[in-house]
Design a protein around this nucleic acid. Structure first.
Lengths: 346, 346
DNA sequence: CTGAAAGCGCTTACAG
DNA sequence: CTGAAAGCGCTTACAG
């Protein structure tokens, strides 16, 4: 019984390869890394022993020694929200090739969970971190920053040392949507926004207002209604808008779910969309293309955002590798411009 | 200049705590783990130094020493397919509390990528692995099995040593769907299935056939059409079915996308759904509830599947911890029963 | 009740 | 061109 095939067979280590090849671990390490010259013959011998024993360096040991884990943390509120898997995909797209892996964490938006996860990631010595919260702010990631880990904050408002910020340009989104509607001849445009007066939804309203103004149209606060971010919110919102003395001919909804709720009431009332009423959403969720009439909406590109995040972080990682202690380049803030996806509803 | 506040401040190590508390690292380690008695006084002193210096053990060092990384790999074909984020969520649900983190990998279904990722995960000494491929089989994960890493294979056909298999019960799904339709008075039922004659889609057809038979209904192969897994496939499939001399009164579609395609032709031809034609899908994608008429479909519970996967793996991990080399319990195969989500279309 | 030492598996100054 | 040794930061037999 050699035990060779056993599931419990000890993993082969660099010392095994060295012994078998009749060289030192140092040399084995160097044929692997190529960081110093090794004579043709020994190199060949070592290579063949590596293959023979199927040796691959233990990343754990390597990480401990090199102080680099080749790992990036991705912390999100809810991986089940389709935006984040797309971001994850984009991140993986650019980060896999250079040898990084990604560790995911789900916070449910709880700041307790956020702190715990950030701490655990630090404890695990991730090389970089992307953090997305419902209301991302720098203070959520201080533990990482203090540990010298570069972080990319998604959805944050401003960059700070150690923290690059990447987010959707919600103001532009609102502006673009409104301009699209105006261009199609709608001048009386309602807006069903979210319950609170700040954050991305408020930025969209700001963009809407700006587009109105620059088109010489009057902004009318009666046309803005605040509702929950849900199908029911859309229903309620459109109902209110339709009760107005002069109801809008088009309605912008703060997200696609809300727009779908608005379409429900249009259907129930027998309104033709978009002839009697144009409806437009934001986000471009999968259902937007599948419902009837298909929803015209504003799309970001979450996968591309993920790629951008990856690139930014890779850049930071290169910096810290090279210039040890030298001043890093300034933290960036990157805004993603959205575009309209014209379909049937507007 | 103390450098204390610098981003480059060395992380504090166990030896720092020990020195400052006037004890050995051994003792510090033991107050942390509680694995041996430490006198009240020294324990208190060590604790306060820990707090003061903010020390947390470096997981890397700990992992290297203990041969346990507290990491689980999750390898999926496409994290962007909503099934997988739900699985990920369920996995996180059960695995976070006991201190595990999850490393994700995306293969795009390429077996090259699958092999590479499995190898990389092994190299990183993950404690366990969940693997989902488009056609998962044991041979995809041999590298992990050989390294003694317990794996949970999602969607596989049979368990084998070191590999537990968890999958949806597609046969039951087909049967349940068909029975539902029969129960609602539909006796002539068409089936738009996928292009190939095996895998989950074929199992669904088998279940359909079985339900028909056990209800005393005749199986008619003309009512089965093979199409692509897409909206266009659903359109084409229903068109063929409607050209039959005696077209079906109800149609089962191999997934919700296909069902949506079928609904497109029903709408175009002015058929009332479900009165003239009942349409039913599988999977319960988000859009199923949002379209009109809302789609009646068969739902699995991916998040619960993820939880189950987590539980199985946690069980295996406990086994290997306890009985070193003793025979592990037999590999399991767990099948998830789906249920119908009655909505408007059937 | 506590500590010195070995060792997990690598990489990299240092020396020749 | 190559190797012996130190060290990354822990845990745990071993010894007292």
């Amino acid at each position: 019984m050699t035990g060779e095939g056993s599931a419990l067979a000890k993993r082969v280590a660099i010392s095994d390869v060295a012994a078998r090849a009749g060289v030192s671990p140092t040399t084995v390490s160097h044929v692997l890394s190529g960081r110093r010259h090794v004579s043709e013959v020994t190199r060949a011998r070592v290579r063949s022993v590596m293959d023979e024993l199927g040796w691959e360096p233990n990343q754990l040991a390597r990480s401990l020694r090199m102080q680099r884990t080749q790992t990036i943390a991705l912390i999100v509120p809810d991986i089940t929200n389709p935006f984040y898997p797309s971001v994850a995909r984009g991140l993986l797209d650019v980060v896999t090739e250079p040898g990084y892996q990604v560790l995911i964490g789900n916070t449910d938006g709880s700041s307790q969970a956020e702190r715990d996860l950030v701490a655990r990631m630090v404890t695990r010595s991730v090389d970089a971190m992307v953090f997305a919260g419902y209301y991302s702010k720098a203070s959520d990631v201080t533990a990482a920053v203090e540990a010298g880990i570069p972080v990319a904050l998604m959805g944050g408002r401003r960059a700070s040392p150690g923290i690059d910020v990447l987010s959707s340009d919600d103001l532009a989104a609102g502006e673009i949507a409104t301009r699209y509607l105006i261009g199609r001849g709608y001048h009386r445009i309602g807006f069903i926004t979210g319950p609170s007066g700040d954050g991305p939804p408020a930025d969209r309203v700001k963009g809407y207002r700006r587009a109105l103004t620059s088109a010489g149209l009057r902004f009318n606060s009666q046309l803005i209604v605040r509702e929950e971010f849900s199908r029911a919110g859309g229903t309620a919102g459109l109902q209110k808008l339709l009760e107005l003395r002069k109801p809008p001919r088009a309605v912008l909804c703060t997200n696609d779910m809300v727009a779908i709720g608005a379409l429900d009431v249009a259907r129930a009332r027998g309104l033709r969309v978009p002839d009697d009423l144009a409806v437009m959403g934001f986000d471009d969720i999968e259902a937007a293309a599948l419902i009837s009439p298909a929803l015209t909406t504003i799309a970001g590109d979450p996968r591309e955002q993920g790629r951008a995040v990856g690139r930014v972080l890779l850049g930071r990682l290169e910096e810290t590798g090279r210039l040890e202690g030298t001043a890093a380049s300034l933290p960036q803030r990157i805004l993603f411009a959205p575009s309209v996806v014209p379909r049937e509803s507007a």
